[in-house]
Every structure is written in structure tokens, then in C-alpha cells.
Computed example of a mutant assay.
Amino acid sequence: MKIYEVRRLEKVYGKNAATGTALDGINLTINKGEMVAIIGKSGSGKSTLLNLLAGLIPLTQGTILFKQENMDTFKDKQMASYRNKNIGYIVQNFGLISTMTVLKNVLLPMKRKKDALKALGILKQLGMEEKADKYPHELSGGERQRVAIARALINDPDVILADEPTGALDSENGANLMDIFKALNQKGLTLVIVTHDEGIASQCNHRIKLKDGKVIEDILVNQ
């Protein structure tokens, strides 16, 4: 099943003479159950592509289909619903609210703030249940990343979108994170990971390489 179909996608920033092309007519397909690495040097368009898939910024031209629905036709409420119900987004540097406990950070995407049992269950799966009442500054980098993952999982998303998730971690915690991602992927979750790390990319079964806003490599492994 196709999760995303991207066709002739363009993203241009700025106006008139002061424009810059972040994505230049790219095409790609992401299927259910894939673990996808989007790789490339800084400025290649990786994060822009992830933000477009998340519906966080408007495209300039082209089409993004999510489960055969054209995302460009979504009204504001539809887009908010799409992000809340279908997407778990993991930002660089974790994105936790410093004044909230671990548990409250995990519950942020939930409409029903009383659904703490589910959040605690996810934290337990990630080895973080005993940290539920701690605050982000009391956690290590690896622990904060696990909280960010728990928050991304709380609404049972179809897709996890992760922007440089190992960028703020040491090598040991980065390896632990990838073990978590691979375990989630083995359960059928689709993951799209932006990274500049070839070691991370080599663990994914679908690798898409960008350069100057274009796809220069699109490889499926073990398919």
C-alpha cells in the first residue's frame, strides 16, 4: 500500500528576485511498512521535504498524495486532523516543554488529557515509566529522545517523521534509538528519517538521496 506519492514537487522560498529553490520537481513513493532514510548534505532539501510530508508548510507546485488523498486540497481543519491522527513528528533537539513533566509532554497531542494510562504504557515500553514525573532538564539526552518518541506514538500514527533524530545524541544513544526504530518498523510502522549519517541510512530499507533539491538516488533494499 502506498502511504505517500510525491509527484513533480517544488518548493520555492521568497519572492521575485529573492527566491531560492529548496525542492526542484522531485518524484518519490513511500510504501506502508518501509523505514526510509532521506539523506543529503545540508541545504539539499531534506528537512523541507519532511515538513511538506507533515503538512507544516505549503508546497509551491506539484502533488503530495497521502493514502491517495491530495494533501493540497486539505482545509485547515483537515490538515490539523491529518497531522494529529496520522503523523508522529520527532523534531531535532527533542522539542520537549521544559515546564511540563515527562507524562504531560507525552500527552500533549491528545485531545483527552486524562488518557494517562496509555501514555504510561508507551513510556513503559521505552523503559521510561519511572521517569514520568521528571522534567526534561532532569533527563539525559537519550532519555529525552525516548520521551519525544513516546509523544510521537501516543495517537497511534501511520507514519513517524523524524528530523535528524540522532543529531543531539552520542553514538551509544544513537544506536539505541535506531534499535527502537527498527523494533517499531518490524511491528509495521512506517518511518521516514532525515539524516546526514550514512551509518543511520544503511540500516533503512529505502534510501532516498537529495542534492540541490533533486532526487539523485532512490534505492530499495531487501524488497
Rank of each mutant, 00 (worst) to 15 (best):
S42A: 08
S44H: 02
S44L: 01
S44V: 00
S44R: 03
G45A: 08
K46F: 09
K46N: 11
S47L: 15
S47G: 13
L49M: 02
L50W: 04
L52T: 06
G55W: 07
G55I: 09
G55T: 05
L56V: 04
I57N: 09
I57P: 08
I57K: 05
P58W: 04
P58T: 12
P58V: 10
L59M: 09
L59I: 14
L59P: 07
Q61P: 00
T63W: 03
L65I: 09
F66T: 06
F66N: 11
Q68N: 15
Q68G: 12
Q68D: 15
N70D: 15
M71R: 14
D72S: 12
D72C: 02
F74D: 03
K75W: 02
K75A: 13
K77T: 11
K77W: 08
Q78F: 02
M79V: 08
M79W: 07
A80N: 07
A80F: 02
S81A: 13
I87L: 14
I90H: 12
Q92W: 08
F94S: 14
G95S: 05
G95F: 06
L96N: 02
L96F: 04
I97E: 06
S98R: 08
S98H: 13
T99Q: 11
K104F: 06
V106L: 00
P109T: 09
P109C: 13
M110S: 13
M110C: 15
K111F: 12
R112S: 14
K113G: 08
L117M: 10
L117Y: 06
A119H: 01
L120I: 07
L120C: 08
L123F: 03
Q125I: 00
L126G: 03
G127L: 06
E129S: 03
E129C: 00
K131F: 12
K134V: 02
Y135N: 05
H137E: 12
L139T: 02
G142Q: 03
E143C: 08
R144N: 11
Q145C: 12
R146D: 01
V147F: 06
A150F: 01
